[in-house]
């Protein structure tokens, strides 16, 4: 008697196909909202997409690169500010948004050159210092007039219905593009390096993973996505008050979404964003109590369920929902060998 192992390596499976189908339906429904529900619905949909961007990007940073930042508002606020500035200079607001996203990527790359040498708490608060610095500098701009702020008046060139639909479609396109970029990144060689760093940074360095380069790729992607969220938030709300964009409450939202959904998994960030959206819709009017509740739930998850909701659901599904790894199946075949 001899036992032979046949190993098959696959990616995805039924769970992944169902997830993809669900996401595609969700995207189609969102794209159709301007006809289905009008302006109000489109505005809420943009909010949901912004939360998804923020959650997925912050999760990529904390969950994949091990970098907790409490200053991602740097990219969120600066992108909104650049959009305002470009539109004020006569650039079409939608072109301004795209340019602001590109500027966010550039800012991310420049920041990464020095910030990534920091780690842990120093990185976390160093990012916050950068965000505060940007906030102060934006306040100095006479166009913004300190905390008074201004509006993206250039959007008035478009009819209300047109622009709410365009903003939604742009938000949807950006979100899908960023998500796709992240999945492609995680499936690449760099993705394997990211997983190695997440599991054991020193060990991965010893097997030749370029830790700084890998972290930089994730950091720049996170900066780009977060900048997109800021520019889109501006397009949807039209007013720009610095405090509303650089405020620490955004970090609290990101923390909540990622911790509750599940740190280190894209699915977790998506669930966290969706949950946050629902909670915000239902309880947002409660003001400070609502924030107390968010904080308490986030701390509770951090202490008692550090892998979040997806950490509970994920392992119970057959296969990965958003497959980034490989599925290795072993089939034991018993055969009688003849001498």
């Amino acid at each position: 008697m001899m036992t032979q192992s046949l190993i098959t390596v696959t990616r995805g499976g039924a769970t992944a196909q169902i997830t993809l189908a669900l996401l595609a339906v969700a995207a189609l429904v969102l794209a159709g909202l301007p006809w289905l529900s009008g302006i109000g619905g489109s505005g809420r949909a943009v909010a949901l997409l912004v939360y998804i961007l923020l959650a997925v990007m912050w999760n990529a940073l904390a969950g994949f690169a091990g970098l907790v930042s409490i200053g991602q508002t740097l990219f969120f606020g600066v992108a909104a500010y650049i959009t305002i500035r470009l539109a004020d200079a006569g650039v079409d607001p939608y072109v301004a948004i795209l340019l602001a996203i590109a500027a966010g990527a550039l800012l991310g790359w420049i920041t990464s050159l020095f910030m990534l040498s920091l780690s842990g708490g120093e990185f976390a608060i160093g990012m916050w210092v950068l965000s505060s610095l940007a906030h102060l500098c934006v306040n100095l701009d006479p166009l913004i007039q300190g905390e008074t702020g201004t509006s993206l008046i250039a959007l008035n060139a478009y009819a209300l219905e047109t622009r709410s639909a365009w903003t939604l479609w742009l938000a949807l396109a950006v979100t899908v593009a960023v998500l796709a970029a992240l999945v492609v990144l995680l499936r690449s060689r760099t993705g394997a390096a990211i997983t190695a760093i997440r599991d054991d940074e020193i060990g991965s360095r010893s097997i030749g993973v370029d830790v700084i380069r890998t972290k930089r790729i994730v950091f720049v992607l996170a900066a780009t996505g977060t900048a997109a969220a800021g520019a889109l938030w501006l397009a949807s709300n039209t007013t720009f008050q610095p405090r509303a964009y650089f405020g620490v409450q955004w970090t609290a939202y990101m923390l909540f979404m990622v911790l509750v959904g599940g740190l280190g998994r894209i699915e977790g960030a998506l669930i966290g964003a969706l949950l946050f959206f629902v909670i915000e819709t239902l309880f947002g009017a409660f003001g400070a109590w609502y924030l107390v509740g968010l904080g308490a739930v986030a701390v509770g998850f951090a202490l008692f369920l550090p892998n979040g909701i997806w950490g509970w659901i994920g392992p119970r599904l057959p296969g990965e929902a958003i497959p980034t790894g490989y599925l290795i199946t072993e089939i034991n075949k018993t055969s009688r060998e003849e001498n």
Partner: peptide
């Protein structure tokens, strides 16, 4: 004590959460 047993990130996340809770409780 619970948070510091879970690596480098958890104490940061937990104390940030506590800050949010305290800030808003004091506001209320």
């Amino acid at each position: 004590s619970r948070a510091s047993g879970g690596g480098e990130l958890l104490p940061l996340l937990a104390t940030f959460g506590i800050a949010i809770i305290l800030d808003n409780l004091m506001f209320q």
